[in-house]
Design a protein around this nucleic acid. Sequence first.
RNA 1: GGUGGGUUGGCCGAGAGGCGAGGCAACGGACUGCAAAUCCGUGUACACGGGUUCAAAUCCCGUACCCACCUCCA
Length: 468
Amino acid sequence: MTLRLYDTATREVRPFEPVRPGRASVYVCGLTVQSEPHVGHVRSAVSFDVLRRWLQHGGLEVDFIRNVTDIDDKILAKAADAGRHWYEHAALMHRELTAAYAALNVLPPTYEPLATGHVPEMLALIERLIERGHAYPAADGSGDVYFDVRSWPAYGELTRQRVDDMEAAEDADPRGKRDPRDFALWKGRKPTEPETASWPSPWGPGRPGWHIECSAMAGKYLGETFDVHGGGVDLRFPHHENEQAQSRAAGHGFARFWLHNAWITTAGEKMSKSLGNSLTIPAVLERFRGIELRYYVVAAHYRSHVEFSFESLEEAASAFARIEWFLEQVQGAEPDYADDLPDAFVAALDNDLATPAAMAVIHEHVRQGNVAVSARDGEAASRAACQVRTMLDVLGLDPADPAWGGASGADDERLRAAVDVLLAGLLEQRAAARAAKDFAAADAIRDRITAAGIEVTDTPDGPKWSIA
RNA sequence: GGUGGGUUGGCCGAGAGGCGAGGCAACGGACUGCAAAUCCGUGUACACGGGUUCAAAUCCCGUACCCACCUCCA
């Protein structure tokens, strides 16, 4: 495999070699389950899902860990607003998130660790940092523990920033910090916070800081050094910088590649700031199928900023319909991994997951396949369809993947068969009318079928119907 | 102030020194009773100003505008 990936830390595309031969280890920062997932959230998931599928296709076993942050300030605040227990709120949003991932055919991770389930690991890491002189309990009796930024000379290396150039947040509460840039590893419980949101620690009851969870969980499941750490661009600083600092200060090698996906914005604004809830995944799925949304996301490179609009999503759906139509013409063509993927497709994905170029290859094969269908060259058409489906499958976009069908698959099949039988009579009448050149009668029959929401199309092999 | 990124045809969206990615839309043609789909064809696109080069959307310098992050707000 000659996969090359863009590493944010070195700002260059370089060859990917797993630390452990034959196994790739990937850690992706999941979400803080505080509100309904929106389009921006799933971009990260889909992007790294493509990475995972490509690594697997390259013959690697992939240990894919994607965490869920289920305790944090926002969760406490939003749960209080909604009149729920914080853990109830987190669990509710977590279920929404899982449903959104499933709707977009994002493969379940190898494991999805929760922050609240790893407090002992975090405490151990914090104690180690204190022993090594890189962390300290606050002197103000708050029970907080901070990472000592000044004790770690490499601090800022991931994002190429010098500590002295950093602007301390104006409204930051310095509390017991030695330096305003020090960040919390552990937060002592405040009297206003629910008791259920605290855990015992050597520094008194409290809860974990945001960054420490990822260091602890990545270390636990992937080892002290692992291959890829991914997340959204916004996480580079402070989150990833802090993760790297604390992990390395604890003596770990940590991530060898840092991958960051760009934003999807609306009207130039971050989605999290955008008004309303029209862009939550459940809302978008009322208007578009999951596979269409996934196509839309994959059609842009993961490092490119995307300006979301329903118009461009509509365009993407049209483009995808073209692919689907071709595959419907050539039934029975299964993905075939024994057959090599087109070189251009492989080259595209190997080049930092250039999905737009990969998509161009798919469209090119669809075009050739359509030519073969027109020429009634069944063998060529079938081969093209196999290749198209194989490529789509690598991107998680194979329309025939059972993951899209859901539980109603069997019922759908039976309904389809029933409609087929019912329509057969009407289509025979229409064929007779056409043969007699009674086009008014033929069109009347077609109009009736159309009114029922079914589109009839004449093809060289006779009429075909599809749900409009 | 610091750090990173962006500006490409009607639209979306790739590319990163030389042959016009791909898609959507539009127009012309083929096919069709008509449609639909499909195929073939049609576009002198790279924010602006300089420069380097035989050759620049791509490299260099400058300018403008935009975006993200800068320590518990993705």
